[in-house]
Computed example of a mutant assay.
Amino acid sequence: MKIGLKSWAGAMAGAALLGAVSVVPAHAGATAEGQFETYISGWRVGNESRRWWDNNDTWDYTGIYFSGCVSDGGSGFNHASLQLWKDISSAPDRSKGTRSNYCGWVDYGDPDDRGNYYFALTDIYSGTFLSVDYVKVAW
């Protein structure tokens, strides 16, 4: 009888520990308001991403992640300048900053402003065309 109780108590403690460990990562990732994944093929300076709506329901930063970056320059891909814009329908679009992406993650902070957003390629350091195998935008 004691062995059964010890086994049951051990199983319950293990289940509680597993539940506590698995809740933390799920909760941490659930705070982002939105995201999408895509790729870039043969972009030139001036090309723009698709638009996305940010309700500004969270205080999360807006970020852009690149992986698998290639440019046609002789020295290969170094970095790309990306400008985040808020799309304004009846006025000029509003810049939310420019960041250099070295084929990784860049943050623009919390735009603190609901609306449609997009990013544009403003410069490629080494080359005239940019391709990126994997792009993730999160806000």
Results as ranks from 00 to 15, higher is better:
3 I>N: 15
119 F>P: 01
121 L>K: 06
23 V>I: 10
100 S>F: 09
131 S>Y: 09
26 A>Q: 09
71 S>D: 03
82 L>R: 09
74 G>A: 11
75 S>C: 06
78 N>W: 11
129 F>Q: 15
12 M>L: 15
39 Y>L: 12
86 K>S: 01
80 A>G: 08
18 L>N: 01
78 N>R: 14
78 N>E: 10
21 V>I: 15
98 T>H: 03
81 S>R: 09
30 A>F: 07
78 N>H: 15
47 N>C: 10
49 S>F: 02
50 R>C: 05
10 G>C: 11
2 K>D: 14
64 I>Y: 03
131 S>R: 12
5 L>Q: 09
94 R>V: 08
68 G>P: 01
96 K>E: 08
31 T>N: 09
134 Y>R: 14
32 A>R: 12
63 G>K: 00
101 N>D: 08
20 A>M: 13
109 G>N: 02
9 A>D: 04
121 L>F: 07
11 A>D: 06
95 S>G: 01
54 D>Y: 10
72 D>T: 08
24 V>L: 15
69 C>N: 03
62 T>M: 07
55 N>V: 00
89 S>A: 14
88 I>G: 01
103 C>M: 05
136 K>G: 01
88 I>C: 13
121 L>G: 00
84 L>P: 12
88 I>D: 08
134 Y>S: 14
63 G>C: 02
42 G>T: 00
71 S>T: 06
125 Y>C: 08
104 G>R: 06
111 P>W: 03
134 Y>K: 14
70 V>K: 12
93 D>Y: 00
43 W>D: 10
121 L>R: 03
102 Y>E: 05
101 N>A: 08
19 G>Y: 02
83 Q>G: 01
75 S>M: 10
76 G>W: 05
17 L>I: 13
7 S>F: 09
65 Y>R: 06
90 S>G: 11
55 N>Y: 13
100 S>H: 14
110 D>R: 00
112 D>I: 03
38 T>I: 05
50 R>D: 10
79 H>K: 09
31 T>I: 14
37 E>H: 11
100 S>N: 14
95 S>E: 03
53 W>F: 14
3 I>K: 15
81 S>E: 09
126 S>W: 03
27 H>C: 04
121 L>Q: 05
59 W>L: 11
14 G>E: 02
1 M>Y: 14
29 G>D: 08
36 F>I: 04
48 E>W: 02
107 D>L: 04
125 Y>I: 11
136 K>A: 09
47 N>P: 00
14 G>F: 02
133 D>P: 00
21 V>S: 04
17 L>A: 12
95 S>D: 00
62 T>D: 03
51 R>Y: 05
108 Y>P: 07
66 F>C: 03
114 R>E: 08
29 G>C: 01
77 F>A: 05
79 H>L: 10
